[in-house]
Design a protein around this nucleic acid. Sequence first.
DNA 1: CCGGGTATAATTGTATACAAGTGTACAATT
DNA 2: AATTGTACACTTGTATACAATTATACCCGG
Lengths: 220, 220
Amino acid sequence: MIINKYLTEAGNTNQPLGVSLFSQLQKDILLEKLKPGQKLTEQSLCTLYKVSRTPIREALRQLEMEGLVETIPNRGAFVTGFSKTDLSDMLSLRKIYEMQAVRWAIERITEEEMDDLLETFEFMEFYTIKKDIEKMHNINISFHKIIYDASHNRMLKQILSSYQIYLKYKRRDVVYPEDYLPSVLEEHRAIYQAFLKKDIEKGVKAMEIHLTNSADRTLL
Amino acid sequence: MIINKYLTEAGNTNQPLGVSLFSQLQKDILLEKLKPGQKLTEQSLCTLYKVSRTPIREALRQLEMEGLVETIPNRGAFVTGFSKTDLSDMLSLRKIYEMQAVRWAIERITEEEMDDLLETFEFMEFYTIKKDIEKMHNINISFHKIIYDASHNRMLKQILSSYQIYLKYKRRDVVYPEDYLPSVLEEHRAIYQAFLKKDIEKGVKAMEIHLTNSADRTLL
DNA sequence: CCGGGTATAATTGTATACAAGTGTACAATT
DNA sequence: AATTGTACACTTGTATACAATTATACCCGG
């Protein structure tokens, strides 16, 4: 049974090749299967991913927009990659916009979105008890995405959503401490309660604390 | 004579069609020659821009990444457009990151970048006296781009640079008041002096003031 | 052995051909 | 009259062919 849209996966398999190719290449670059500086010849990608050049080129244009590859005209595409420094920079930038998202979201959140937030938070409590880290990651993302939506700012939502993908792959090798899940739960509880009380300053502060801790955890 | 790289235009004419197509479509969407909701048939774009579907599709993927069009698989691309609300949202988001850019830039700026900043500011003084609004627009952008570079944060630079294009086209129809140029000059002077004194808080505040005024001016 | 120039190969840029999916008009059926 | 089915046109998705550009290898003269 579907509870709310934030807790369901995408899973549409009938998408054009270029779209899934983009995701795959993005993943491979972030996981450094494709190494920074490496040249991505279209032909080699064709044989690697078993498709023709047309969808490959479309995916490369998208990667270029994200700054993951750099293409030099008539020379080809080169992996830019995503360094530790980039990750650190992104976490800083993310924190800043997440704080703003909270600010707007508390002002503008609808009742329906508030229900979603409650529901999602309750799931967090449940899976914290269950100690299911994988589920918690997904619910964590859902919780934040509800806030993005509630900010009712299309660009902000788009930017913060795009950050999530990077963090997802770059957080892979983190080893979580014993008290990880309970700590995260309490950080989110503080945010959630600020929404209940419509206390903007408290919410922003709670998000700042949460993401400062989160950054500390992911940067080791 | 070239003074510094920020004061020169790009002008590479030998770029692939997809690249210039992207810029052209971006421009046409922002200027609302292509209206929100309008369907962009690949064939019609082919005849309109006199190129084949391949570069068209590449440009559409890029526009999709910027959120200017939405493509539905097997259905086509539809203009999303950029509303007044989007502009207002973007100005808010821009201000936030510009303030952070100043924070980092004052910490990290190199001597060479400091020289560029000085040079650019002196050009501003010159063209303020000359009352050349067109030149001032370009120099204004240069001034800010130097700060982006000086922040030494690749992502921040990329995001803020991408904002500039939107503002460029959306600021077209603004009517400037008589004291526009001198006011802008003084706002930039405050920023520049904060860089000289390495006074981060003063710099951030000066940027906030500048962009608050700037937003007021562009939102009419 | 080194540098320059040319031919050749490899790669990107663009156009086009074909396949697959979607929408529409119209007839047949209920 | 409303609905379903089907043929057709149209559009997108993908592959491939051709053109333009760039990289490489080889030869040659110094």
